[in-house]
């Protein structure tokens, strides 16, 4: 660490704030990766990894990632629910790392539902 200036204070604030923003409860989207036994068996772990990678690469802080158990549609796993704040949740099915990236860029960043992978609303 080196001596800093007033300008540096602001830079540190912005950088660290991005990392810690999720402690403050404001977010643009909530992504739920279904991680029941079926989900994990079908590859949900890889989906999660690629999602976290995308978020880091995009440098955004206001996407909340959570997990949930089996949704009852085991044959459609790995599944993913994307809930943009103020919009209806969209459930995506049979996701892999590649689809995950498209959904991230298209839906979460772009705001366009990727209906080719979507299973249902709600």
């Amino acid at each position: 660490m080196a001596r800093i200036t007033v300008g540096d204070l602001k830079k540190i604030k912005e950088r660290v704030h991005n990392e810690t923003a999720l402690r403050e409860g404001v977010h643009r989207a909530k992504v739920t990766v279904h991680m029941g036994t079926c989900g994990i068996a079908a590859g949900a772990r890889g989906v999660m990894d690629s999602l976290m990678g995308e978020i880091a690469a995009a440098g955004i802080s206001d996407v909340v990632v959570t997990t949930s158990g089996c949704a009852g549609l085991c044959s459609q796993e790995p599944m993913l629910t994307v809930e943009m704040t103020g919009e209806e949740p969209i459930v995506y099915s049979k996701i892999d790392g590649n689809k995950m990236r498209q959904i991230f860029k298209g839906h979460i960043l772009g705001g366009v539902v990727q209906s080719q992978f979507a299973l249902a609303k709600g």
Binding site: R15, T20, R23, I55, A56, S61
Partner: peptide, 10 residues
């Protein structure tokens, strides 16, 4: 920068 999906504050 490293983004975590969850922060656990103990």
């Amino acid at each position: 920068m490293k983004v975590f999906r969850s922060h656990l504050l103990l």
